[in-house]
Amino acid sequence: MKNSRRKFLKIAGATAAGLGLSTTAIKALESTTAEPPRAPDPHAAPAVDTIKMGKPVIDETAPVADVKKNPPPSKAKQWAMVVDTRQFKSSKDLEPVVNACNKIHNIPSLNKKHEIKWIWEEEYKHLFPSLETKFLAEEVKHRPFPALCNHCENPPCVRACPTQATFKRKDGIVLMDFHRCIGCRFCMAACPYGARSFNYVDPRPNIEEFNPQFPTRTKGVVEKCNFCAERLAKGQWPACVEASNGAITFGDLDDPDSDVRKVLKNNFSVRRNVSLGTEPSVYYII
């Protein structure tokens, strides 16, 4: 199917044919689709890089898990994220992470009712209501926890979406197709993590700093964290990972040698509300 999707390549051939010999025209189409251009492997030959966002910064000295970080990959079976919440002592530590995401994705600042959040700060008791303890350590109680889409392996939002506007990619990312979303907000009701936001109003007037390389959204569609799919495609780390100073690790959960697997192997981690069976891909080291 993907191959024949390239038929626009020779669209003009059919243009000249008109409908007089429509069968010939279709045959012409088929012949052009027989040999699809192959998408080059970005590792072998880097994609035409019109976006100069800078390479990921890998700080080897950062006090993360004591493993050497792999270079950013661009393909995975199940992308996952491990947040070492111990490294976020106060809101100030989390702020750059949130800001990096907001800025790079043109996220507007709106009032609480209509706000758009891809990654944001939450308290422990809200993030893990089912893991609440009566006498939580003071430090954990006030620790800022980043909340974001869990890119569940079994995402209820994808199940609920009537148009496949939200879907799970082969690499595990739960993505939004803003072109297809009809704004029914079924996914928001289905998401048990409050990860989704709806554009109740036009976001553009409320975007403070603006990244021309990334589209804004139109009013009336749902959006959420996309694990920076656009950056991964270019072999870059997600913006939050990059801005986290090593507090957030990112990688392929299916790859035993990936950063995330290494970190998880060595640390106790939890996920949000696992009893729902959604299999979140965001892990928190407490």
């Binding site: 993907k2 390549l9 020779k10 192959r38 993505l175 803003f178 990334f214 589209p215």
Partner: peptide
């Protein structure tokens, strides 16, 4: 294709390679 299939590279019939992006 870019959004749903995650493919971002386009090779024109002339063999030139482009990133499939309206803005960029």
């Amino acid at each position: 294709i870019v959004v749903r299939e995650g493919e971002r590279t386009y090779t024109s019939p002339s063999g030139k390679i482009f990133t499939m992006s309206l803005s960029n």
